[in-house]
Design a protein around this nucleic acid. Structure first.
Lengths: 142, 142
DNA sequence: CTTCCTCTTGCAAATGGTTTGCATTTACAG
DNA sequence: CTGTAAATGCAAACCATTTGCAAGAGGAAG
């Protein structure tokens, strides 16, 4: 199943006009196996075993390249670093635990907002970002 | 009116246990006269005329101090820098023009979300951040 | 009004995330 | 298999922000 997903995303990557390098395969693999947002350093850390070494700057360059082509989506969790997750096309937000940093996907409660807002302000609405911050049940016990 | 507001915020600052220095007065003044979020460099730029010079690091240090004491509120517009605005206590969000960067305050459409979400996830919900991105009427014409 | 202690500032250097220049290596179209 | 454009490694630069330290300045107490 993971293999299939890898092939799916590698195909997408090729369709974007990007070459399929060892480093890109590995970055994709990490993004696939983790469900949820990752930053450059986290991806890099997953890949520092000697056999699949790659430069941190390569991770940054590729996250930028993937993001520009819509393969991944940039996520701002409000921590200062840029996070990314595979762009599966389903619009959602994130619920972030302020204790342990766990991130839960969150359905969008704002489906109707953009139309209303467009009418009120005459802005053409392009996008919105919502983060919700809380404390997860486990962290509440501590 | 501006003078009254300045006195109000200077009093608040003193009540937080902070000393009222020339630099802090000036930073407050800029925050008061601008309605909307500002970052450290913008505040600094407003104050580089010879008579009211201050160090950029002083701006950073004070924004941090004010923020910690709840005088101002940190705003993340998704641009990479930290923005701040006076904490007037009214909970709101921001509509940001992707053309010119204009920022409009936005009433909160999520009043009921936190209770529902708390029930569904067992998280205790602390806060949320919402940004809406669009293009303002002026920028649409270009 | 003066003194003293503590908080604050200026200055310069460090930090952390991210980007960039350049020579070398690699994917892959032909 | 070969040539070429794209990608990588490496090191240095960048930019917002933070920090250490000595000098300076609020303001409470006298």
């Amino acid at each position: 199943m993971v293999r299939e997903k890898c092939e799916f995303w590698e195909k997408k990557l090729r369709e974007c006009g990007l070459r399929l390098t060892r480093q890109r395969k590995e970055i994709l693999r990490v993004l696939i196996k983790t469900n949820g947002p990752l930053n450059a350093r986290e991806i890099f850390s997953e890949l520092t075993s000697s056999e699949d070494f790659l430069e941190l700057s390569t991770v940054y360059r590729n996250l930028q390249a993937f993001s520009k082509r819509g393969l991944i989506r940039e996520i701002d969790l409000g921590t200062g670093e840029k996070y990314f997750e595979l762009n599966t096309g389903d619009h959602h937000h994130h619920l972030i635990c302020m204790g342990c940093g766990e991130v839960l996907p969150l359905g969008c409660p704002l489906r109707h907002l953009e139309k209303d807002l467009s009418r009120e302000t005459n802005y053409s609405i392009i996008d919105h970002r919502l983060n919700v911050y809380g404390v997860c049940p486990t962290c509440q016990e501590k």
